[in-house]
């Protein structure tokens, strides 16, 4: 009897998850079968090897979303979005997951087109653009100093470089803030870093918080949408 069970298990494993498949293919197969937890494990293992792959974070977010962990899904979609903000699927899933939590990707009052233009390039791409413009500006200045030629070109490149540097600085301040998302169904915000402090508010999963400080196992946070400040246990948050 045991032999039959063993054989059946091997056959099942063979037909469901073929050993010749790559981990991504295996994860996709599991995902299609609705076995999201197993697919998530494979994706997370692969993400350790390829931490700059936005699609892996996107797929991890999908698996979390299907498992009902909207907060962790939002965190991973955000990671993918930072690496590849122009991807429509990543942007859609992030906005969708945020909407289910009552959050919005585009801040209120900001036109969508402006927001998308501002986040058209990833931070690395913007940094590369700024560097390239700086080099070109230096070259033009150098030529102008030596040959007394190309003054207008140097001026235009200098202006472009200045604009790019401002854009980079704005993105840097946004990227550099410590963003976190509520990863548990409800996180309690207390007035101090300890359970002896009263609960001032509770926030449901998927809401975005900015981490200001850390004390032991507590984060001092600000709820972005409400400007509410307090302390939250760190295991209830997922830093992005």
């Amino acid at each position: 009897m045991k032999k039959y069970i063993l054989t059946a298990s091997c056959l099942f494993f063979f037909f469901t998850v073929s050993p010749c498949q790559t981990p991504s293919q295996q994860a996709e197969e599991l995902y299609r079968q609705g076995r999201f937890a197993q697919a998530l494990t494979l994706y997370e293992q692969e993400a350790k090897d390829y931490p700059k792959n936005p699609f892996l974070y996107y797929n991890i977010g999908n698996a979390y979303f299907k498992m009902g962990s909207t907060g962790l899904a939002v965190a991973n979609y955000y990671r993918a979005y930072r690496l590849l903000p122009r991807d429509k699927d990543i942007r859609h899933n992030l906005a969708y997951a945020l909407a289910t939590c009552g959050e919005s990707l585009v801040p209120s009052g900001v036109p969508v087109s402006v927001y998308n233009a501002f986040f058209y390039l990833s931070f690395q791409e913007l940094k590369g653009l700024t560097c390239g413009l700086f080099w070109l500006t230096c070259l033009a200045v150098w030529l102008w100093l030596l040959r007394r030629k190309g003054r207008t070109t140097a001026l235009v490149l200098g202006i472009l470089f200045a604009l790019s540097a401002c854009w980079l600085y704005a993105r840097y301040t946004l990227e550099n803030r410590s963003l976190a998302v509520v990863a548990v169904p409800v996180a309690q915000i207390r007035s101090g870093p300890g359970t002896n402090f009263p609960v001032n508010a509770s926030v449901t999963q998927g809401h975005l918080l900015t981490v200001l400080d850390k004390k032991d196992s507590w984060y001092e946070v600000v709820v972005n949408t409400e400007s509410l400040k307090g302390w939250v246990e760190n295991d209830t948050l997922e830093k992005i």
Binding site: S24, Q25, E28, Y58, N62, F65, K66, H92, N93, Y96
Partner: peptide, 8 residues
């Protein structure tokens, strides 16, 4: 509506 599918 739902999230879009995996990136394969």
């Amino acid at each position: 509506s739902d999230i879009t599918y995996l990136k394969t």
